[in-house]
Write a protein that binds this DNA or RNA. Structure first.
Lengths: 347, 347
DNA sequence: AATTGGCACTCACTCGAGACGAGTGCCAGG
DNA sequence: CCTGGCACTCGTCTCGAGTGAGTGCCAATT
């Protein structure tokens, strides 16, 4: 069994290895940390740690390197989330507190996080799946073109251009709008999409006569747009950092860049991470194997948006500075929650 | 002076070097190409090519490698744009011919291009700077929230959410809309922005009393949005290919990934390239030095969008297959022009 | 029982020497 | 103008010796 000092040795190894990027030997541990025992004693502890598969030696006679399991123990039991410096806090604030819509805020958030951590930063958009449609508008443009605008209660707006067979008159617009609004306004994205699907199906099965083909056309476009609302999105920044830290990844960074471009993999990964009581979570090394990211770690934190919850995180080498990245992620998530809450109340 | 055969030797060197990634020696040229002369003769030609700075030897006694100038001569005088295979043509068509709005089309285009070339693909959005505002709409939502929608004659739509001090009544909306529309509808993006700036300035200088602060608020939001229209945008795909071809770049791929994330650098680079009579252009190696991309090449082609013109291109190592990339870029640009033209006429 | 100093051992890494060979430049002859 | 021949360069590979950081184990000590 690993003793209390043994765990301290593990902590020292993780810290030194992250800092120096060199396998850590017993001698350098006694030099750099005040354990008050000799190198031989440390060696005995290290042998136990190796038995527990918490550290490993790259070659028979070299220092030790933490295993993924070692990092996991470090993150779960040995590391405290290191508080940010005041300078860092004000940096976050000045980054985030600027006017702009949700898109702007997401972009600024992800930039703040990449700047703070020097890693690839990832921000999930708040999910709109539970949002409710608060408004639908039809705007007739010139010959045959019409604009369909949707607004949710969470403030997301989307529009779609549509070509109509013949130009509708103003009364038609009002009537059509009422029909469509009746289907979806006040309903959640999910329910609204369902209501439209039902209506379109009732035409197909002959329950209802297709006398209002234009409305059906509009409805189907609205349905497509609602589907898009349901898709969660990611914003990312700092991908160039992968190249800068390339040596930290054993293999090629190709799969990483691919995952970043794919987005959907990262989406799933972030979604499946289990948060602790602070809303923080880490997924380390081979724990990411099912996602093809066995040589990377992801650190994520939850933030609250009105009515829902999403995540911000960073992606980096397994050999990353977890305490400081966890702190950055937590701080950014908190500020983001606060800002979104203020926005909500400002209305 | 370099003889005609000398240029053929240059062509052979470029082709072989791109294919094998090894410096090319006189012997291997005689083996792989039917020059009908001896290696010694080729060596004499190569000495002349070296005098002209078209090729260079990495070490005193190794084969030769094209210089950037050599690639330039190759692209300008020695390479024919290699026609695409029928399979590739149908691949492009099936990629591009799917329903969807402009954003979808841009994304599909960039994917097609990266798939075709295996390089990083870049597509410029058609510039909206010369587009004209065809419609402006104000939509009152719930308490104090209002939506401002802008539409251009090129079909671009944008909207912006706005918080008003107090809820306007329907007549107000109509009046305010008329006022704003009067300023910008029918004008170009540039002129519309100017008209708004003039109006706001006339308040500041006291020429006009600020009795209509709400309209001014709306106008300033519209002006911001118009500014965004003016900004050109890029879509990119295939950045992971950089990692795959990392060995082809002498240094780190960090600056490349940075430029890709920046976008603005690539924007300028693509904008400054000078096209030949086919609308094609290449910027090779150190020609990109002012953009920090001295180890990369960009191949671009022009496409026509209604009322304007923009570019598609690929970014890759200087040692790239120019003929085939030029062909891909040209083919994609042509299909894109055609599709946009059909869209236009369909209205 | 835990700790320590000592010691033999392992093994990656470095360096230099030598062999190899691809490729060149040059020259004299066709 | 082309060609075969030849000396030369120089990067690359291989091998072996030397070095040193670090380990594992053991007997002695606290």
């Amino acid at each position: 069994m690993v003793s209390a000092r043994g765990l301290e040795v593990l902590r020292a190894i993780v810290q030194d290895y992250v800092e120096t990027r060199e396998p850590v030997g017993s001698k350098s541990i006694v030099d750099r940390h005040a354990f008050g025992v000799s190198a031989a004693t440390i060696r005995n502890d290290m042998a136990l740690l190796e038995d527990e598969d918490l550290i490993t030696a790259p070659h028979t006679s070299s220092g030790r390197v933490p295993t993924d399991k070692g990092y996991r123990v470090f993150v779960d039991h040995l590391s405290e989330v290191r508080p940010l410096s005041p300078a860092q806090r004000t940096a976050i604030m000045s980054f985030l507190e600027a006017p702009g819509d949700l898109d702007d805020l997401m972009v600024r958030t992800v930039r703040a996080l990449t700047q703070l951590t020097g890693q690839v930063a990832i921000v999930q958009y708040p999910s709109f799946a539970q949002a409710h449609v608060s408004h639908v508008e039809l705007v007739g443009l010139d010959a045959g073109r019409m604009l369909v605008v949707l607004v949710t209660d969470t403030g997301r707006v989307s529009q779609r251009l549509l070509f109509l067979p013949h130009e509708p008159v103003a009364e038609d617009l009002v009537r059509m709008r009422a029909t469509v609004a009746d289907l979806i306004v006040g309903r959640s994205i999910r329910d609204g999409a369902q209501a439209i699907a039902d209506r379109l199906a009732s035409v197909a099965t002959g329950t209802r006569s297709p006398h209002d083909t234009v409305v059906d056309l509009i409805a189907s476009v609205v349905a497509e747009e609602l589907d898009e609302f349901r898709q969660d999105r990611l914003v990312m920044a700092g991908t160039a950092n992968l190249a800068r830290r390339e040596a930290d990844f054993r293999g090629s960074i190709y799969p990483l860049l691919e995952a970043i471009e794919e987005q959907v993999t990262l989406m799933r990964l972030m979604g499946e991470m289990v948060a602790d009581e602070h809303g923080l979570a880490a997924s380390i090394g081979r724990e990411n194997e099912p996602f093809g990211l066995a040589e990377a770690s992801v650190v994520a934190g939850e933030y609250d948006a009105p009515g829902t919850r999403a995540r911000v995180g960073v992606l980096g080498p397994t050999r990353m500075d977890y305490p400081s990245n966890l702190a950055s992620v937590r701080a950014v998530a908190r500020y983001l929650s606060r800002l979104l809450d203020e926005d909500e109340n400002a209305r």
